[in-house]
Amino acid sequence: MRLVVIGGTGRIGAAAVEQLRSLGHEAVAASPSAGVDAYTGAGLADALAGADVVVDVSNAPASGLDPLTFFTTSTRNLLAGERAAGVRHHVVLSIVGVDRAADSPYLGAKLAQERVVEAADVPFTILRATQFFEFLAAIADRQTHDGVVRSSTGAVQPVAASEVVEAVVDLALGPPLGGVVDVAGPERFALDQLLRAELAAAGDPRPVVGDPQARYAGALLGATTIVPTGAARLGTVTLTEWRAARTVTR
């Protein structure tokens, strides 16, 4: 099977490409650095030629384009190219809770991306993931002001990036579901408590203050805003296990 992974040089994409190749599939890592730009369309037709499946795990650039413009334009370009190439399955990685956090510009942009996929005539599967353990330090940094982490007290259910990769690969190799699959970690935390524990484990002295009015990615979080509320694919790696593995790796 030939699979094109958009964002194939990033954290999730590179690992997905590696897994797909290890299973004997032809996996193409497509990204601007590899000459394929879904936003401008550069290199897209050549990359999609002969593809059976397209997996979109791309992320909006850190600066420049706003996420809404990036995700909707890139997705429309991809889907048009897929129709022309006869692609049979479009898989996109999204975020759990995008339909409950419309006040977040980024999550709202991901929801708009999903709507573009759903409205197209290419068979699709949407995988929504919770926050990755690997992003906890960055989340704390974004919520730091004057040396204090002011964090939402809303619920989170973080997952190891490796388990998101496994879900991406499984769905890409399966039939289009025409709907949404949630993937999350096995444990649920209040975000402020999680960040407090993670900073303490890292020897980071920053205090964490829980504030129900503090925003996460622009959204106010409640008990169910960005965690699964129905059936979900649950990982098995706990925070303690992930932290231990990270220590061994270091």
Score class of each variant (00 low, 15 high):
residue 84 A to C: 00
residue 31 S to N: 09
residue 50 G to P: 04
residue 111 L to C: 01
residue 65 L to T: 04
residue 86 G to Q: 11
residue 40 T to R: 03
residue 228 P to G: 06
residue 116 V to T: 12
residue 50 G to Q: 07
residue 124 F to L: 05
residue 24 G to P: 07
residue 178 G to L: 06
residue 247 T to Y: 01
residue 218 G to D: 14
residue 99 D to L: 06
residue 92 V to S: 03
residue 58 S to A: 15
residue 59 N to D: 11
residue 112 A to K: 03
residue 115 R to Y: 12
residue 81 G to V: 09
residue 214 A to W: 03
residue 243 R to M: 10
residue 97 G to T: 09
residue 171 L to C: 09
residue 116 V to A: 08
residue 138 A to C: 00
residue 20 L to Y: 08
residue 188 R to F: 06
residue 208 V to M: 09
residue 123 P to R: 14
residue 217 A to H: 07
residue 211 D to V: 03
residue 188 R to D: 08
residue 128 R to K: 04
residue 29 A to S: 07
residue 180 V to R: 04
residue 211 D to I: 05
residue 38 A to K: 10
residue 72 T to P: 06
residue 173 L to A: 02
residue 176 P to N: 12
residue 18 E to S: 12
residue 41 G to Q: 07
residue 244 A to D: 13
residue 40 T to P: 01
residue 15 A to N: 03
residue 119 A to N: 05
residue 90 H to K: 12
residue 158 P to W: 02
residue 101 A to T: 12
residue 147 G to D: 01
residue 155 A to E: 14
residue 122 V to D: 11
residue 19 Q to M: 06
residue 74 S to G: 12
residue 43 G to Q: 01
residue 56 D to R: 11
residue 54 V to D: 03
residue 220 L to E: 13
residue 198 E to A: 14
residue 65 L to K: 05
residue 128 R to I: 08
residue 193 Q to E: 15
residue 244 A to W: 08
residue 96 V to P: 01
residue 218 G to C: 08
residue 94 S to V: 09
residue 110 K to Y: 14
residue 174 G to M: 13
residue 91 V to S: 03
residue 200 A to T: 15
residue 202 A to R: 13
residue 219 A to F: 13
residue 18 E to G: 00
residue 25 H to N: 12
residue 200 A to Q: 11
residue 195 L to Q: 02
residue 205 P to Q: 08
residue 157 Q to N: 02
residue 116 V to M: 11
residue 35 G to V: 13
residue 61 P to N: 04
residue 11 R to L: 15
residue 4 V to R: 05
residue 85 A to D: 09
residue 59 N to A: 14
residue 47 A to K: 07
residue 2 R to W: 10
residue 162 S to G: 11
residue 133 F to V: 02
residue 115 R to G: 00
residue 185 G to R: 01
residue 148 V to Y: 06
residue 25 H to M: 04
residue 208 V to A: 08
residue 80 A to W: 00
residue 18 E to C: 00
residue 195 L to P: 00
residue 75 T to E: 14
residue 92 V to N: 01
residue 37 D to M: 12
residue 201 A to T: 13
residue 148 V to C: 06
residue 249 T to A: 10
residue 198 E to H: 15
residue 135 F to R: 06
residue 56 D to I: 06
residue 188 R to I: 06
residue 178 G to I: 07
residue 37 D to P: 13
residue 146 D to I: 07
